[in-house]
């Protein structure tokens, strides 16, 4: 979005750049996005830095109606990914041909530009996924 808040981006850099999650010290449950309290009742959550970079596609869609940040990138392939170890994340699927994707496709995490604040503003980066085989 035009003039996206810089602090809003900056404070989420650990999550956007390297999937820093929270893990419960009591029961081991992992929260991404990070949570403050575990479902088990414990408030003792520690940083889990960082989640695995490989996983499998659970489901995906090709999105043609996109917001202003993504007008020049449409269609976007977006999906739900299960990372090795079981934590799931949603993200864009890049470097991919939709007809070669399917639930179970092996994907890896990549570091990409996500949004750009116009011609003069900030370039915002973050994780995306791509199939291991093109």
């Amino acid at each position: 979005m035009r003039h996206e808040s810089v602090p809003m981006y900056w404070r989420n850099i650990p999550q956007y750049y390297r999937l820093v999650a929270k893990r419960c010290r009591q029961c081991g449950a992992v929260y991404f996005p990070p949570a403050l309290r575990c479902r088990c009742g414990s408030a003792e959550l520690e940083d889990y830095d960082e989640l695995p970079h490989e996983g499998r596609l659970v489901e995906y869609t090709v999105l043609y109606q996109v917001g202003t940040d993504f007008l020049k990138q449409k269609p976007l392939i977006v999906g739900l990914v299960e990372l090795n170890g079981g934590v799931r994340a949603v993200g864009q699927i890049v470097d991919a041909q939709p007809d070669r994707l399917a639930p179970g496709t092996r994907v890896e995490l990549v570091f990409r530009r996500v949004a750009v604040d116009g011609r003069h503003g900030l370039i915002m980066y973050g994780y995306k996924f791509r199939p291991v085989q093109p």
Partner: peptide, 23 residues
Amino acid sequence: MDTYFERYFGFTPLSHAALMAKM
């Protein structure tokens, strides 16, 4: 959507609905 972890990456109600519809 979750502005930090969904909207930021381009997710919309439509994209989530599509994933749910498929499943």
